[in-house]
Design a protein around this nucleic acid. Sequence first.
DNA 1: CAAAAAATGTAGCTATAGTTACAAATTAAA
DNA 2: TTTAATTTGTAACTATAGCTACATTTTTTG
Lengths: 143, 143
Amino acid sequence: MPRSTRKPAATPPAEKFRRSRRDRAAETAQDYVEAIADLSAALGEARVVDLARRLGVTHVTVNRTLARLKKIGFVNTLPYRAIFLTDAGRTLAAECKLRHETVTAFLRSLGVPEKVAELDAEGIEHHVSPETLVAFEKKLKRR
Amino acid sequence: MPRSTRKPAATPPAEKFRRSRRDRAAETAQDYVEAIADLSAALGEARVVDLARRLGVTHVTVNRTLARLKKIGFVNTLPYRAIFLTDAGRTLAAECKLRHETVTAFLRSLGVPEKVAELDAEGIEHHVSPETLVAFEKKLKRR
DNA sequence: CAAAAAATGTAGCTATAGTTACAAATTAAA
DNA sequence: TTTAATTTGTAACTATAGCTACATTTTTTG
Ligand SMILES: [Mn+2]
Ligand SMILES: [Mn+2]
Ligand SMILES: [Mn+2]
Ligand SMILES: [Mn+2]
């Protein structure tokens, strides 16, 4: 088809794909700080092996991701020691935990089976904006 | 803390993180086939530049992703020609389009503003299981 | 306390997905 | 029908995130 006779491409919706990619890139950090907070609460401290088991990856992957999180300022680590969240890390973890719980509860309230709700929420949570989260919360209250 | 006195780590929920990572890895392919189908319908054909504009990436990124989609069997391409979906690609695109529309409509039905619903749906869609999708559809009908 | 086991760290590999810079081919214009 | 503009392709780089294999350190056990 001659390109000159084609309809001009409409204004592209690139913004939503950028948002989606940005959210995707933040998923790892969010799951890690949430897991570190959980493990710290449950076991008293979070170790590399615990994270690896919990997340279903090797300890090598955990190690490299922790290095990145440390550089960003979400965790503090010392060689061969337990992992601790910074203030920023704790704040992020609290936000994520709340959002995670809301998303899971919301799916459950729709009749989605517990197990499925948990699996889906683990991915969905990272793409739920504050506005949508509020909508979920409202719906949960009005029942 | 001595590790021997720590509580033994409970059965780890690694499965949900694996699911989440698997979904994440499939996001790109889904957005591409959906975009190719859209562009083909709107313009008569999908070109590399169109996809780049639509997705908000450079044409180089589009090129390499198309090579991967071709290898997987979702698209057919010839040098300097338009891009076409295979049967498998068309099937996937149709599934994704339907799911995408359902997720968007569902968010809208909760009172989430149009723009926000579109942005959120672009990411959420990839993590919605068939069960949850059905729950969304049911909720949409009963209104 | 020495030896064995477990945990942590590191080297080096793969794949995906983004980029800029430049080359080649196609399409449109003069 | 040349020439200019656009499109497509490729080379080479970066970052994230997974892996295996092996080295080092710490912890537990005999
Ligand atoms: Mn998650
Ligand atoms: Mn989570
Ligand atoms: Mn999408
Ligand atoms: Mn979509």
